[in-house]
């Protein structure tokens, strides 16, 4: 919004997708993303019952890549930008963040299956490699994570 010219047309519209019902004006209900999270977007660590933080080193490269994915703020811009209303970039970011960490590897199978199942249930579309999501994402989440999501999913289906 910083760079525009006089008499340019600026279009403002609510995030348009079936999975984000409109509440009023530009306000939509994005709780479908929270339900995807509740389906499996976590590591089942109990409060208190965890090892000392430095007991499991994580290769810097993995930690950095996990951090790249974790930057997702769950805004839904990727969904709104996608011609299929796919939430793959969002789900991929979450799955990727955990799959890259040793702590997250243990539940990787159930996690990806449950999150993808919920994503489908909420009525989000599928990815057809448009990359509109990556272009709009304010946190620079890349489609490489979608590739990882696909790998994780196939791996989980086959094992």
């Amino acid at each position: 919004m910083r760079v525009f010219h006089d008499s340019d047309t600026i279009v403002a519209e609510p995030w348009r997708t079936k999975a984000f019902p409109i509440l009023k004006d530009l306000i939509v209900d994005r709780t479908s993303l929270d339900r995807i999270m509740a389906a499996g977007g976590y590591i089942s660590a109990k409060t208190g019952g965890v090892p000392e933080a430095n007991s499991i080193p994580v290769p810097k490269h993995d930690a950095e890549e996990s951090m790249d994915a974790a930057a997702c703020i769950g805004c839904g811009a990727c969904v709104a930008a996608c011609p299929n209303s796919s939430a793959m970039l969002f789900v991929a970011a979450k799955v990727s963040q955990f799959a890259l960490l040793p702590q997250g590897k243990i539940e990787r199978k159930e996690r990806v299956l449950r999150m993808v199942e919920q994503m489908d249930k909420e009525g989000f579309g599928n990815c057809s490699n448009n990359y509109a999501c990556e272009a709009e994402c304010p946190k620079k989440i890349t489609v490489t994570h979608i590739a990882r999501l696909n790998r994780e999913f196939i791996r989980a289906e086959l094992t």
């Binding site: 590591i43 208190g48 933080a53 810097k60 950095e64 974790a70 960490l101």
Partner: peptide, 23 residues
């Protein structure tokens, strides 16, 4: 406060790490 860091790492919070993989 030390337990908090343990807890967050276990949850998958990607804190900054050095080249040996430690926090």
């Amino acid at each position: 406060s030390g337990n908090i860091i343990d807890q967050c790492v276990a949850q998958g919070v990607p804190f900054a790490r050095d080249y040996a993989g430690y926090l």
